Simulated scan of single mutants.
Amino acid sequence: MTNEATSMDSLAVAERVRSLMSRHGIGKRQQTTELCRILDLSFSQGHRKLRGSSPWTLAQIRKVAEAFGEPPMQLIGAELDDAGVAGAQAHEAQLCVGAFEWPCIAWIGAPLDARSSAEFAAYAHGDHWRIVRCDGMPEANAREVVKIEIHPKRCEPRRMAVAVVDSDGTAADALRTYLEQHGFATTVLDSLPAFVDALRTQTFDAIVTDWSFGEETAAAAIEAVRRSGKADAPVFLLTGDLLTGKASEAEISEVIRRFDVACYEKPARLAILVADLSKRLGRG
């Protein structure tokens, strides 16, 4: 494939670019100005491009398509891409297989009739095209499909889920905000019963919990984590009561030994806590 289109191709590309701009609400009188803005051209250069008297590079075609969020192949067309699809035009379509549908680019050719043989057929539905397997005789208004391109969507990585268990709403919200800024999905629970209930239906990659909840401690809840389906989830224990003597150092030490828990004094230094959390989860 050469980088420069031929003069005949330039006419076809220019026509597709004008059609694309019209579809996106750019009037004929504004199209040259818009093209000059996208490609950083002078007005005379842009005018020649849209008339088809100036060759198009593939880089320019891609840049125009990307500016309008459309696939470059729709502007390149069959003439520049594949001799096997000569005469067909590229269209955005839905490939339908059973109950499933995928967005695709389909090169749609001539109408099919009762004597035609094709593996796939295209049917126009308003402004859209549906592509289906052609089993037997094609239905009325069917058109031949000579090429299909499927572009799967890229899935974003799953955000690791962290439970924050704390009856202090201000502290919990501050930690949640910091965790979410660093890419974690955070669930705040303000009581131990709420957390234990959540363990029955939710899976957490890590837990950050306060130690004291009135007269109750988090010991039983931490044990519940170690008996859950995510028994190896890192647990971070926060407490501000060791220095005041309200929390039992011996009891916390026992929980740390039995259940492999990390312990931080409140108020926790969030950067250090999240760095430790990320390292234990294999993120850094």
Results as ranks from 00 to 15, higher is better:
residue 135 D to R: 13
residue 89 Q to G: 10
residue 83 A to S: 14
residue 41 L to S: 07
residue 86 A to S: 15
residue 89 Q to M: 11
residue 171 A to V: 08
residue 152 P to D: 04
residue 125 H to P: 00
residue 105 I to D: 05
residue 70 E to K: 00
residue 72 P to G: 10
residue 94 Q to E: 14
residue 86 A to G: 14
residue 117 S to M: 07
residue 75 L to I: 11
residue 170 T to G: 10
residue 86 A to W: 07
residue 91 H to Y: 12
residue 105 I to N: 07
residue 114 A to K: 08
residue 129 W to V: 08
residue 152 P to I: 05
residue 140 A to C: 06
residue 40 D to N: 14
residue 146 V to G: 15
residue 86 A to D: 12
residue 56 W to S: 04
residue 150 I to P: 05
residue 118 A to M: 03
residue 71 P to K: 06
residue 63 K to N: 06
residue 101 E to K: 12
residue 130 R to D: 12
residue 52 G to H: 01
residue 136 G to P: 05
residue 65 A to H: 02
residue 50 L to Y: 00
residue 48 R to E: 06
residue 73 M to P: 13
residue 134 C to S: 12
residue 134 C to A: 09
residue 108 I to W: 02
residue 130 R to I: 14
residue 156 E to C: 14
residue 42 S to T: 05
residue 82 D to G: 09
residue 150 I to R: 09
residue 85 V to F: 14
residue 69 G to M: 01
residue 143 R to I: 00
residue 167 S to K: 00
residue 121 A to M: 08
residue 139 E to M: 13
residue 89 Q to R: 01
residue 37 R to W: 01
residue 46 G to T: 02
residue 93 A to Q: 03
residue 113 D to A: 04
residue 79 E to I: 13
residue 123 Y to D: 03
residue 85 V to T: 15
residue 154 R to N: 10
residue 91 H to V: 08
